[in-house]
Amino acid sequence: MKNFNGKVLFLNRSDINTDEIIPAKYLTESTKIALKPYLLEDIVLKGFNPAKDIEGKSVVIARDNFGCGSSREHAPWAFEVNGINMVIASGFARIFRQNMFNCGMMAVELDNATIDRLFTMFADKNTSVETDMDKMTFIFTADKSSQISDDSSGSNLLREVIPFKISEYDLSLVKAGGWVDYADQKY
């Protein structure tokens, strides 16, 4: 199973399409790794600089209808080769979502209110997530950067536990590492 823990990249937009994730001109590459420098190259998002902001991130959080557009599996692959195995959003385009699970990656839907809360609490901070696949929960943590803590515990850590759901089928793909072997054995 792939790794679903690490630093979070917040992309504060809906309808991020697959042309933005990996432009068509790179579809001539014949290895996944060749896609690495071009992830999110064409995204329209103020204040986001793909050259700087992707490095070191393992999880993406975005708004609704993530991955709409073309069927290119290059989109999940471009994330994968950058060490990003999971996207959390309030909604996904069908093909992108299926492609993620078919690759043993995760595309997890959370409701709008929860996504809102995550953006409000964590988007401007150095945030990490830990994914507990058995309990089906995400644990988000961040420093309350530069703020002086006034609660008596003295804790300077922002922490939020969020339950999530994926179907039994999706889980089996994540565990099996993909759909090809599963189908070849079964059908």
Partner: peptide
């Protein structure tokens, strides 16, 4: 087909859907 506009063929009363490379692989194979 590994192409999102495969839905075009629904014009004939077919169920036609775009898929990614992994689904395409399984389609080709099985």
């Amino acid at each position: 087909m590994g192409d999102s506009h495969t839905c075009t063929h629904g014009a004939f009363g077919a169920f036609a859907a775009g898929v990614g490379t992994t689904d395409l692989e399984v389609g080709i194979l099985k």
